[in-house]
Design a protein around this nucleic acid. Structure first.
Lengths: 184, 184
DNA sequence: GTCTATAGCTCGATAGAC
DNA sequence: GTCTATCGAGCTATAGAC
């Protein structure tokens, strides 16, 4: 059984990622979580406290994610590229929510996202030993993530958007290109 | 002399990109534009009309941008990568603003962004003739843009964020890698 | 620990003077 | 064409019953 606290944070994330900050009211979050506004306020005394808790939970996931990028070059590169094309998992949802807070003026959110970006980059740089390949891997992953999540969000209204994404075979070719660069 | 209408749209963009949708009230936009709320409402009878006008202006810029990507493979790839690392120009600001509307539930904004994404991708695909290089160019550009704008937004609070961006030399190496792939 | 009720504020939009 | 004044809706947060 998930605690009420976690259910509320999940609902907050869901609202932030689906309808955005403007429509994410305490009422809406409480309704999604299945509690009353009073119940929500008991756990999180203000909207800011709710945002802080979300960012804190995100930071924990971020640490885990960066740790998982440790390994030899081939594993790290492949893992990062594949992670970047997955949408809908825990970290992805949290990322989108925190990113939305960041873009709407929440400085703690900006700091948390930047911290994760830096951890990823450092991990890839350390395992590959090449600044160029590290940057390319990071950029390709970022682009992949941007495209995947944007296409995923708009798929229902515009199905042909899927053409923007590389196929599985192309993704393999991208990974191979990156690893080939390391061998030169 | 810029028309009041354009000044209001500029102010709307500025507010959307700096403080976000939630804090972008009609009062705030009017204040930035240097008009009263009544004056704003004369030009744009509702907030939705304001958003529609912004998206329409963005769509115009988007068409121009996609047209400029026509050319031979080397020119197109270089142009797209360099465009992706520029921050603060007209199209970039408009993009950020419309993107923020999209992420907050505005369907027209989503459609406009997707349309531009598709135009870019089609132009790169046509000039390179290679689906793999087209996707890689597009992804690298997207990643570059994401990093550049995010780092740029947060630079004041976190100066060390600049390390996340590739140097000019690395950007050249990235372009060269893409063009080498075409020659194989 | 969760609820209802409501106070107090801010926003979008309207009305009407100039 | 631009302004001030103001209404009604919807928001966060508080108070207090259970």
């Amino acid at each position: 059984m998930t605690s009420a606290r976690e259910k509320i944070l999940d609902a907050y994330e869901e609202s932030l990622t689906t309808v955005g900050v403007a429509a994410t009211t305490l009422d809406a979050v409480a309704r999604i979580a299945g509690v009353s506004k009073g119940g929500l306020i008991y756990h999180f005394p203000s909207k800011e406290a709710l945002a802080d808790a979300l960012i804190e939970r995100f930071t924990g996931m971020a640490r885990t994610s960066a740790d998982q990028l440790q390994g030899d070059a081939a594993t790290t590169v492949r893992h990062f590229i594949e992670m970047s094309s997955s949408v809908g998992d825990e970290l992805d949802t949290a990322w989108l929510a925190v990113m939305n807070l960041s873009r709407n003026g929440n400085q703690s959110a900006t700091r948390a996202v930047l911290e994760l970006e830096r951890s990823w980059h450092d991990a890839i740089l350390e395992s590959t030993g090449s600044p160029l390949v590290a940057h390319m891997t990071k950029l390709l992953g970022d682009g992949l993530y941007h495209s995947t999540s944007f296409v995923s969000e708009s798929r229902e209204s515009l199905p042909e958007a899927a053409k923007l994404l590389p196929s599985d075979g192309e993704r393999e070719a991208i990974i191979r290109t990156l690893l080939d660069l390391l061998d030169e």
